[in-house]
Structures are given as structure tokens and as C-alpha cells.
Design a protein around this nucleic acid. Sequence first.
RNA 1: GGCCCGUUCAUCUAGGGGUUAGGAUACAAGAUUUUCAUUCUUGGUACAGGGGUUCGAUUCCCCUACGGGCUACCA
Length: 379
Amino acid sequence: MDRPVRLRYAPSPTGAQHLGGIRTALYNYLFVKKVGGKLILRIEDTDQTRYVPGAEEYVINSCKWAGIEFDEGVHIGGPHAPYRQSERKDLYRKYADELIEKGHAYYAFDTPEELEAMRNRMMEQGNPSPAYDHITRQYMQNSVALSKDEVEKRIQNGDPYVIRIKMPRNEEIKFHDLIRGWVTFNSSQLDDKVLFKSDGMPTYHLANVVDDYLMEITHVVRGEEWLPSAPTHVMTYKMFGWENVMPSFAHLPLILKPEGNGKLSKRDGDKYGFPLYSLDWKEQNISGLKEKGFLPEAYINFIAFLGWNPGTDQEIFSREELIQAFSFERIGKSGARFDPEKAKWFNQQHIKLKSGEALADLLQPYLEQKILLLTAIIW
RNA sequence: GGCCCGUUCAUCUAGGGGUUAGGAUACAAGAUUUUCAUUCUUGGUACAGGGGUUCGAUUCCCCUACGGGCUACCA
């Protein structure tokens, strides 16, 4: 199955983007450049309630600054346009319907209150993690439990509903991760995830699979937080009959806070006096590593090393060297802690590599500003 | 709690059945320097614990501990 290599970076425009997102984009980019594939920028804005104006621009600008270039995407178009999921809205419904027809999905009419009641009831009964699964669905308000007439009546009635995946019972789901090797799950442990929301939008789980299929994506490179839902995605590919063109998966280790526990978050920037973002994000009063004086080449060099290494003693890499050296096999499995001190060292090394002229050019805007200020004072 | 993933110096990591367990950052000490997000030298610190397998495990297997992720009509 030798298909042209196509990868995508698919962020959701929910706010300022940090190191982790750019690193994901970078690994996508490095691999594509190395093997001569195409890189796509797709915006996953299926959750209208979390949409943040300007976030999309921010993603595009951060990538541009870091030198991550796309071949297709929201900002440049391409053969699979549109690349914004909200603009592809009409497309998803028919795929959800297809799954219902095949008996792999069903309508569910449960209200948020009913869902909560179900969870509370189960927790009282000693189940710490209530799930809408192959057992629960039998006594909920859905087209599996309800009579055909009742279901039809409700739909005619205009009752809001979602479409859920009908996860089979006791089936082994196994897939090969480029970084972790074989990962196995049992479908009985998986819940009936919502594929299509009552507001007419698909969830990530549906939109992601459908778009990756439609856009002929060959490799899905994303953060480790997606690993638990990967089996649901694999199952979805199977239900559609798309196994033969299912992309390979690479789940990246998380980037951890400089101190303490947990993955890197927005607050860490201010807390450690060392912003994590690559561009200014005025609305939130956060300035980035760019404003801090970081060179793009130092930034990507450092970020590439958060989880990946070339296996040699070389640490300072140009963009081209990074592309040549990169491979998924050399990405580690454990989370990497972000170390501001080492980041600074990388920047220093790259500054030293710059010629006097290049440095002068970089300094120019700052000097001009100072001169302007001085003349203003003098006059 | 359940499921999944992980665990080599303080940090990023290399390595891998027999090594003085290597490098880098940071740190410490010293030297050089009119200035510097200089430079040089030296130094200390690591295979989570317990069982196997083996002539021999840091490396392979199992268990425990610890860490992390997920557990939404969020991505």
C-alpha cells in the first residue's frame, strides 16, 4: 500500500497555543519534509462553544514564525478544501447515517439531566466510572432500547438526539503505534461515544476519522492524550470498511511542567516568568518566546529535543539537519519536562552561529525604536 | 476507582545481557577576560523496589510502587 505520504496538523482554535502544539506541528513537518510528503493544516472547530476569535490566526502565525510550512490548509486552500470543519458540516451527517444503516451506530435521546441521573445512580451503586456502554444502552432512551415506532415518533416530534457509536462487546482492538509498538484494548471497556451532536455538528471522533479518510491522511501524529480514544477511532475505520487505508498512528509523549506534576499548561508561562508561547497573545496578556528574544531556529531545535533525540552527541541542529535526522523510532515514550534553562542555552548557541550582519538585521528594529524614543525625548 | 501509557544523574537523554553506565544543561571549584546570554579545566550526583530467566541483569519476563493521560453532546 504505497500511498503518497500526507500528514495533517489539526488544532482546535480554542486559545493560545503552547509548546506542545507547535512540537506536534514540527514533528509532522519534519517527517513530511524528510520523506517528501504533504502537510495539511486543518482546523477542528466542531465545538462552537469553545471557539476563540483570533486563535486560528495565531496558530497560522506561530507555525509561520517557526518555519513550519503547509502544502494545503485553511489559509492556502487545496484539493480537499474546505479545511475548516465547521465549513464541512453538511458532509458528516451522511457518514453518521451510514453507520446507523450498517447497525454500527444508533440514535440516543437522553437529555443531559437523564445522563447525569444515570451516572449518579451508577455511582451510588458503587460504579466509580459510569459509562454509556454496551450494558447501559439497553435501558436508556435510544434506538437500541426503544421500539421502532417510538424512535420514529420522537424524531418526527423534533426531539433532540445524538448519534452514538455502537461499540461491540468483547472484541480485541489492536493497533500498531509508531512510537509505542502494539497497543491492545478490549472493546467492552470502551463506551458508546457520541459521534454526532444534537446541534448538528460531529464530534472530534467522527470528524477526525472522516476527514483523515477524505483527505487521504497516511500518518496521524498527535499527543498521548489521544491514546485512550484511538481504539474508538480504529473501530470506526473498521465500521466504515476503511481499514486498508487507515493511517498509522504516532502518539507523542507529553511535555511536563518545569516543576511539580502534570502536563504543561497556559499558567506555567507566567508562573515561571518564562512564556511558553511563540507569539504575542495580547488578549490574554501573554508574551511569547519570540518576544523574549528567541530565534526561530533555536526554538524548533529545542522543541524537537523535547522527546526526540538523534542518538548522537550532536545537539545543535539547523532546520535542514533536523529534517535529515528525524524519525519516529527515535521519539521516546516518557514525558519530557520543559526546562527553561536549557532552552536559553539552545538560543545562545544559535545566536553565536549568526553572522554579524544577520545579527545587525535582527537588532535593527529594536535600535530604531530606541532612537525614536531618544529623539522624542531630546526634542 | 477503571482503562491505557510510562520509569537511567536535579533536568533533557545515549546505551543495552558482561561498559570505569556516555553526552548536554544546571550546579560546585578553579583559570582566563576592559565588557558579554564569553571561554577553558576539574568535580559530584542515575539504571524505583522485589521476584524470576541466565554463568552473568541496568538491559528480557512478572509483580509492586510511583508518575502521567483518559474516564463530556471538549478537542
